[in-house]
Design a binder for these strands. Sequence first.
DNA 1: ATTGTAGTAACTACAATGGTTACAACGGAG
DNA 2: CTCCGTTGTAACCATTGTAGTTACTACAAT
Lengths: 138, 138
Amino acid sequence: MKQISSRFSVAVHILSLIAVSPKECTGDFIADSVNTNPVIIRKIMGMLKKAGLVEVRPGVGGASLLKDPDQITLLDVYRAVDVIEDGQLFNFHDEPNQDCPVGRNIESALRSELRDAQSAMEQRLAQVTLDQLTVQFH
Amino acid sequence: MKQISSRFSVAVHILSLIAVSPKECTGDFIADSVNTNPVIIRKIMGMLKKAGLVEVRPGVGGASLLKDPDQITLLDVYRAVDVIEDGQLFNFHDEPNQDCPVGRNIESALRSELRDAQSAMEQRLAQVTLDQLTVQFH
DNA sequence: ATTGTAGTAACTACAATGGTTACAACGGAG
DNA sequence: CTCCGTTGTAACCATTGTAGTTACTACAAT
């Protein structure tokens, strides 16, 4: 059983921290809150930066959001840390035997169902914004 | 990026084969259609057997379904090959810092959203039955 | 008894993950 | 201009899940 990488939950954690305490958000400060290594944070911050979600200040340190927290969805974060590429949540055994009626037809039939299932999950993520999470942090 | 194991798609392939050509379904025949090693098939068949989906005849060989194809959903198969355990599609970074307001609260807030997203995907799988797939195999 | 099959154990190769150390590049503050 | 804390990377490493393979035992019908 292999799960979706914790990069995703860490990325949400990072963005939440920046939203809540924008002043003190150096890599080390964030790493302390997430409870991991600062390099992990920097790598994920790099992905968030590349996705246009945050701005990082090299040298002096610190980061800020490039979008309002109510404009950042969990799906945006999920895509930013490319925990899953495009439509590929489900792995499919490759090259089933084309001489067999099942082998020949199962791929397209099953893939389309799996795509729909993945899409249902992602659309659920799209409905949650960062500020819907952060308002819960008292 | 790590995908859900192809055990799942192979399991669906196996069950489809049994539904379509129940006579000739030895491990080697199935392995040829799936295009993999017979041992892989036997392992997955063992999981399907344990889940009460199929019956396997040791010695003589062959297998048959224990439920009607319209009573077997993709979710049943997904659970049978325990590609994901219970509510754990998403991995969560463990032990965020409890001294930080974000670290203290993010886990429960985010986990509940992720559980809902996973559930949306699984409920989509529950809507597809084996015979809805096999009717597409001409 | 022979034969073909299922059931397993043990092993390999590979890839993704999470983490670590080390170091260069950067930008203010003194 | 120099120092210092920070960001940005590269290079590793250990662990884990996956997929496959070989080899062997157990089984059931002929």
